[in-house]
């Protein structure tokens, strides 16, 4: 019987299985043991270098695993002009690493030439939507391929916002013809922080636009009698997010799913076990479908 993990993806695509983030601390072990991770996601900027160890390791790994490039520094929503040098390096990386997926964020990170190296929230206005559509368009033109845009966690909302985040994402993807990367943990965090229904968010997104899911851990900060959830990527996925993940799979069908873990990095085996758990959920939904 063919194992769930043995199902090959069509050329240039990632199968609906779980992947893990490729972090420097795990690189040597992954190179040596080639564990059964479905695919690897890496932060694009960490591989912008002209050469060196990181680049050589990725060159070795790219023949063993499908890749996804996940950018954190393009500042898509910024009103500054796009950084051409950043895009040039991204395009060069896309060219030689041949990833199945390239993604960025529904956020901004720089203004007046100053970068905050963070994924800052946008006011969800008609102006911001038109701006994001134009920027995603520009990036896809320059890269010559489709990108996915991911929802970010946020700790504040703007009074000026006119559009629900799920409607904003759907309109953006529809107009710019990009795909969506839905971070289930971020949906959960924002639902708690801003008081909306996470299931409504997910069920409002058009199924055909969602091409990847993210799962991660978060932390909880207490302020007087109110909590704020922080997207820490430093803990296992919590039960509530696993439940929401099941709901998301019901909405979108089985799609490639990443376990994100960036801080307080655990042993590779623990990360792979989390990916194994995601695979169980994916398989249940694949069988049900």
């Amino acid at each position: 019987m063919t194992s769930f993990l043995d199902r090959a993806a069509p050329a240039g695509r990632i199968a609906a299985i779980a992947g893990i983030g490729l972090r420097t601390a795990h690189q040597v072990q992954i190179l040596r043991e080639r564990p059964a991770a479905g695919w690897l996601e890496l932060h694009s900027e960490n591989y912008f270098a002209d050469g060196g160890m990181q680049i050589e390791r990725l060159m070795c790994l790219r023949s063993s695993y499908p890749l996804s490039l996940h950018g954190v520094g393009l500042s898509l929503g910024s009103t500054d002009t796009l950084d051409r040098e950043h895009l040039r390096r991204l395009k060069r990386l896309v060219g030689w690493s041949e990833p199945a997926i390239v993604s960025e964020h529904l956020s901004w990170g720089s203004v007046n030439g100053i970068h905050f190296n963070d994924l800052l929230p946008l006011p969800l206005t008609e102006e911001a939507l038109a701006h994001m559509i134009a920027r995603v368009d520009q990036v896809q033109d320059l890269l010559g391929r489709q990108i996915l845009v991911e929802n970010v966690s946020s700790y504040l909302e703007f009074a000026d916002s006119q559009i629900a985040e799920w409607d904003f994402l759907a309109a953006l993807a529809g107009e710019a013809r990009c795909g969506l990367l839905v971070d289930v943990n971020n949906v959960y965090i924002n639902a708690c922080n801003h008081g909306f229904d996470a299931r409504r968010y997910l069920s409002s997104l058009p199924r055909h636009l969602v091409q990847e899911l993210h799962l991660a851990g978060h932390s909880r900060n207490r302020y007087a009698d109110y909590d704020i959830l922080i997207d820490s990527h430093a803990a296992p996925v919590c039960d509530e997010v696993w439940e929401l993940y099941d709901f998301a799979l019901g909405c979108f069908g089985p799609v490639p799913t990443l376990i994100e873990w960036d801080a307080d990095l655990p042993a590779l085996e623990i990360l792979l076990a989390e990916a194994g758990k995601a695979n169980q959920h994916l398989e249940q939904h694949a069988l049900a479908a």
Binding site: F116, D118, L120, Y155, L156, E157, F158, A159, N193, H194, G195, N221, Y223, A224, D225, Y226, I228, I230
Partner: peptide, 15 residues
Amino acid sequence: VVAHGIAPERRIQIY
């Protein structure tokens, strides 16, 4: 910034 039970300044401080 919308307060939602937490002062906007406190929310901004997170960033």
